[in-house]
Design a protein around this nucleic acid. Structure first.
Lengths: 342, 342
DNA sequence: TATTTTTGCTAAACCGATTTAGTAATTAAA
DNA sequence: TTTAATTACTAAATCGGTTTAGCAAAAATA
């Protein structure tokens, strides 16, 4: 019942384990092992159900065929779908993925990077939390292959794959403007990361270009660890009875905000889109079946995941090639449903 | 910039790497290394930013502190949340998790188990697809630590953690009966696994106990890889205009079915709960904000995940203890919202 | 004083693969 | 016939740790 090792096969055939290793790595020709022996080795390996010990392999070669993935939270469908794509693409190339949820906590991500480093992963795909710049910089210094996704730090030169958040928010806001909305609010979260900031910037620019003055009261930046009640409060301030400058539309910067927001809007007895129009980033199932299906900024998750893996594997395979770093900015698409009226 | 190894520390201090290993493993006392040297070693290890090579450690000790997780699809929030709990609990005990999505495909799960075996994982947490009995049996034969979650094979004796699906469906159906529904349908999926079968059994039993004859036309078993249109067809047959024996309630056995189902119901212009009441398994966000928030069978995902890890680690730590296998059956709770009327 | 025990430490084997350097036997070339 | 080249293979080092067995010096005991 014990596992079969290279030596077991070698002993069984009366040859050296060197030979067995060569053959099973497809280097039989290269090292001119006779056809006959090659065949026997492969045969016996199958018979004895030989499974190479990747840990031993990894120790010797320095490559583990494993990549480390650090995202905010795998339970969040946004990262769930992204994680799935990454897992799938990695598997295509024979790579395993160790998943880590950092909860946007830089201390956690620091520990996770250390853990992954000890595990000798070949590279990292990271969605870095606020205040993790030093961690990323130390990866750069260590010449460790890695790719950032979803966000990045403008001051650190490194591979990253993100969407054009400015453009996405601009277009979403414009969509609301075109449908006649004038008092457009933005509910976002204080992540302190470029992606969120750019969303609000895009929103502002669209208003500016439409000659609508920006009303800071219509921009609600919630604390990172916001709960339902925080969103409810923001909604009340924007569209509640006592709101002075009632909003007629809301752009939600995340789907978590949007889902909570819709709950609050319903609780206030308001109708979407009649009383209030909404657009949200991300495209969870919830938006397809809710009271009034939600118009969303859809991110190309499949492409982000695939590209991240490909970029990373390219780095891994060419460790000392000229460091032509890649900044990939993908476009989003606006899926128009019923939440903005027509 | 090269990584620090045990030998580096040893050389730097002019001691043996044996000593350094002892000290850093907290065995200084046990092997009576002098206080002074212990202190120096720890000091220097920190100074040189020593990170143990877990791969080398794993090779020697035979334990990698890694567990393999095989689920249907990490992009599915049900498994996303479960995966998250497992990752978190594993991390508490210093374990990493390699995530694999099998897509309910036994060939994929077979490959994934082989891959994980080669990676020398210490144990497995598996949500086994249909027709993977042989794979599970071979784990049993190999005395490999593992725990099944969400489903299991009644004919294979092994650790598993599931919910009482029969009871859950029974109670959900009863809830509909108490609210006066008579023609209750069940839309489920042909996974061929006990969990789904028991849901339909619980549903049937509740009807029997209420002296309502079972109408097989009201039970729609969709193919595993069902799409929106399959659900739409089933819905049409149950509540469409030309339906002869119109259903007045539906129990959805998964949230994927339920979400698609609600879309179809809306498309037909029917109102929930007036025209049709619904109850669904699982508790995705979507159900909280949809037209009429959905009454659901909520599974204790946190507990399933935590318990699975604890059970597994217990197995891993006591490899040859009496194999007192655990069959853990957790209760679900019915969260009552508005989709059944009142 | 001689012997035993304890203290503080190290050498070397080992885990299971890869890889470098090399060797004996055969064949080809000079 | 001698030398060179080729063929078919192997021994041993290596990766970075852990672990077993053991050794020299000091301390304790007889």
């Amino acid at each position: 019942m014990k596992k079969t090792s290279l030596s077991d096969i070698a002993n069984h055939l009366g040859v050296s384990k060197t030979l067995v290793s060569f053959v099973l790595n497809g280097k039989g020709k290269e090292f001119r092992i006779s056809e006959e022996i090659c065949k026997r080795v492969i045969e016996v390996a199958k018979e004895m159900n030989y499974q190479p010990n990747r840990i031993a392999q990894g120790l010797r070669t320095g490559r583990t065929n494993t990549i480390g993935l650090i995202i905010a939270d795998i339970a969040n469908p946004f990262f769930g779908i992204l994680g799935r794509e990454i897992e799938q693409e990695a598997a295509r190339f024979g790579y395993r993925v160790i998943f880590c949820s950092s909860d946007e906590n830089p201390e956690k991500s620091r520990q996770q990077i250390a853990m992954l480093q000890q595990s000798q992963v070949d590279g990292y795909i990271i969605s870095p939390p606020k205040n993790s710049e030093d961690q990323i910089r130390s990866l750069v210094r260590g010449h460790v292959p890695f790719v950032l996704i979803d966000r990045y730090f403008p001051e650190i030169e490194c591979n990253h794959i993100v969407v054009d958040n400015f453009d996405a928010a601009y277009r979403a806001t414009n969509h609301l403007l075109k449908l006649g909305r004038k008092k457009i609010a933005n509910i976002t979260v204080n992540l302190g990361l470029v992606n969120m900031i750019q969303r609000t910037e895009g929103y502002k620019q669209a208003l500016k270009d439409a000659n609508i003055p920006i009303d800071e009261n219509l921009i609600k930046i919630l604390p990172f660890s916001h709960e339902n009640k925080d969103v409810a409060k923001a909604i009340k301030e924007l569209v509640g009875k006592s709101a002075q400058n009632r909003a007629d539309a809301i752009l939600f910067s995340t789907s978590k905000l949007g889902i909570n927001g819709i709950e609050s809007i319903s609780a206030l007895g308001l109708k979407i889109p009649d009383d209030i129009a909404i657009v949200s980033f991300d495209n969870p199932d919830a938006y397809k079946i809710c009271i009034s299906p939600v118009t969303v900024v859809n991110q190309p998750l499949k492409e982000i995941g695939k590209t991240a893996v490909q970029l990373l594997l390219n780095e891994i395979k060419h460790p000392d090639s000229p460091p032509k770093l890649q900044e990939i900015i993908l476009k989003t698409d606006l899926i128009i449903r019923k939440s903005c009226g027509s």
